[in-house]
Simulated assay, not measured.
Amino acid sequence: MEISRRPRGRPKNAMDRFIAAIEWIAAGFVGLVALDIFVSVMLRYLFAVSIPDGYDFGRMFLGILIFWGIAATSYRGAHITVDLVWDLVGPRLKRAIDVFATLVLLLVVTVQTVMLFDKVVATRAQNILTYDLQLPVWPFFALAWAGDAAAVILIAVRTFRLVFHPERVREGRSLEPVE
């Protein structure tokens, strides 16, 4: 028996590293939103000043965070679910329900991604700018779209793994190695 020198939580292959990177990006945007709020509040209450376009940045960072969060939670299966029927059925039907639900999620998020891309293109064409600094808004929308596109990729990977390698998908613990 060969003993692996790899730490237990470390991703095993390129796809698992990609999934981990998506989760880190989502976590980074959580930190960025929290930092923006903290700095804005401290500046407002301690010095009576505000960050130029602070509201716009906060709003756009929150949108980016939501789409990257969708990517992270969709693969992990850590989003809110209602498992009343799923709990009552056997393992084969549970797997069928999981595959069906993931295919529906894939369809919905794919349509959402296409529509969001249209919004990015329209925002760029309209040359929408922030209020104070007159920065273009479309790069923020594009970053949100990239998170949504990552969600499509991760949901497709989850669907593939549910169908062909169900042992590779662990609810809420996607990066834990499977023995």
Score class of each variant (00 low, 15 high):
4 S>P: 11
5 R>P: 11
5 R>H: 09
8 R>E: 04
10 R>F: 11
11 P>F: 05
11 P>L: 00
13 N>H: 02
15 M>K: 02
16 D>Y: 04
17 R>M: 00
18 F>R: 02
20 A>L: 01
21 A>N: 02
22 I>Q: 01
22 I>T: 04
24 W>T: 03
25 I>F: 00
25 I>E: 01
26 A>N: 07
27 A>C: 06
34 A>E: 03
35 L>K: 01
36 D>K: 08
37 I>W: 00
37 I>Y: 04
41 V>H: 03
42 M>I: 09
44 R>V: 02
44 R>C: 05
47 F>H: 12
49 V>Y: 07
53 D>L: 02
56 D>G: 03
61 F>E: 09
62 L>S: 10
62 L>E: 08
62 L>N: 13
62 L>V: 02
63 G>T: 12
63 G>F: 01
64 I>N: 12
65 L>E: 09
65 L>V: 05
65 L>N: 12
66 I>L: 06
73 T>V: 14
73 T>F: 03
75 Y>A: 08
76 R>Q: 15
76 R>T: 13
79 H>Q: 15
81 T>V: 14
81 T>E: 14
81 T>Q: 15
82 V>A: 15
82 V>C: 12
82 V>L: 14
84 L>H: 15
84 L>Y: 15
86 W>R: 15
87 D>K: 12
87 D>G: 09
87 D>A: 14
88 L>T: 15
89 V>K: 15
89 V>I: 14
92 R>W: 13
92 R>H: 14
95 R>D: 05
99 V>K: 01
100 F>I: 15
101 A>C: 14
102 T>A: 08
103 L>S: 07
103 L>Y: 02
104 V>E: 14
104 V>D: 14
104 V>S: 02
106 L>W: 04
108 V>N: 09
113 T>Y: 05
118 D>C: 06
118 D>G: 10
119 K>V: 11
119 K>Y: 10
121 V>G: 00
124 R>D: 13
124 R>S: 12
124 R>Q: 14
124 R>F: 11
125 A>P: 08
126 Q>L: 10
127 N>A: 09
128 I>F: 06
129 L>R: 05
131 Y>M: 04
132 D>N: 15
136 P>W: 09
139 P>T: 07
142 A>W: 07
143 L>W: 03
143 L>F: 07
144 A>F: 13
145 W>L: 05
148 D>M: 11
148 D>V: 00
149 A>I: 05
149 A>V: 05
153 I>S: 00
153 I>Y: 02
153 I>K: 04
155 I>K: 04
156 A>I: 03
156 A>C: 08
157 V>W: 10
159 T>C: 01
161 R>P: 01
163 V>D: 05
163 V>R: 02
164 F>G: 03
170 R>P: 06
170 R>K: 04
171 E>A: 14
172 G>T: 04
174 S>P: 07
174 S>Q: 03
174 S>N: 02
175 L>D: 05
176 E>W: 06
177 P>R: 12
177 P>Y: 07
179 E>L: 13
